[in-house]
Amino acid sequence: MKNDRLNHAGYLWAFAAITRSPGAKMHYRRRRDHGDWHSAAQRNLFNRMIGQPYCCLQHNRTYDEAVAFPESGAAAPAVAA
């Protein structure tokens, strides 16, 4: 079952991030270049973005875009406990 309000908020959040965050834009572009449609790439970006605050809260860390979206395109490094 899909939460329509969360879906709409996620769409707007990801769209805003694509226009303002270099890391988010790079992640979105990489997904598009690998064959994802716009909506699929944006949904993947939102899923990644929703996991970042969760990880920050879990490990009592502040958000860092360099860690969230590393330039190499590899997965974000694991956070040491």
Rank of each mutant, 00 (worst) to 15 (best):
D4M: 14
E65M: 09
G10P: 03
M49C: 03
R61S: 11
G23C: 07
Q42R: 05
G23M: 04
L57S: 05
P53R: 02
N44L: 05
F46Y: 02
A9F: 12
Q58H: 12
G10K: 07
G10D: 04
L6I: 01
V67A: 02
A68K: 12
L12R: 14
M49I: 10
N7P: 01
D64E: 08
A24C: 05
R31V: 00
K25G: 00
V67K: 06
P22C: 03
N7W: 10
A17K: 02
F15S: 15
G10Y: 12
Q52I: 13
H59S: 01
D36M: 09
M49F: 01
R20V: 03
D64K: 03
L45W: 03
H59D: 01
A68Q: 03
G35L: 11
D4Y: 14
I50W: 02
R31F: 01
W37A: 15
H27Y: 13
H8D: 15
A9P: 07
S72Y: 10
T19G: 10
S72F: 00
T62V: 07
S72N: 15
Y63M: 02
P70F: 02
Y28A: 08
R30L: 08
H59Q: 11
S72L: 06
T19N: 15
S39R: 06
A68T: 06
L57C: 11
N47C: 10
Y54K: 10
E65R: 06
M49V: 04
R30G: 07
N7G: 04
L57M: 07
R20I: 09
H59A: 01
R43A: 05
N7D: 12
G35I: 07
D4L: 15
N44C: 08
H38R: 03
R29C: 09
Q42C: 12
T19V: 13
W13L: 13
H38K: 10
E71S: 15
R48H: 11
R5S: 13
A41Q: 10
D4A: 15
T19D: 14
L57P: 03
N60D: 05
R43S: 08
H59F: 10
W13S: 13
P22M: 05
M26K: 12
R61L: 08
C55M: 14
Q52A: 09
A16G: 09
D36F: 03
R31H: 04
I18T: 09
A14H: 09
L45V: 02
N60V: 00
K2I: 15
K25T: 06
Y54V: 10
K25E: 04
L12Y: 13
F69S: 03
T62Y: 06
R30I: 04
A68Y: 07
H34E: 15
N44W: 02
T62L: 14
A24N: 02
A40Q: 13
A40G: 08
T19L: 14
M1T: 09
C56I: 05
L45N: 09
A41N: 04
R43I: 00
R20C: 08
R31T: 01
H8Y: 15
A14V: 00
I18H: 07
Q58F: 04
F69G: 06
M1K: 13
D64Q: 08
M1R: 12
R31G: 02
H59C: 06
R43C: 05
A68M: 00
K25P: 01
T19I: 14
Y54N: 01
Q58K: 12
R43H: 05
L6C: 03
E71G: 12
R48P: 02
R48V: 04
N60K: 11
S39M: 10
D33R: 13
H34P: 01
N47L: 08
S39H: 11
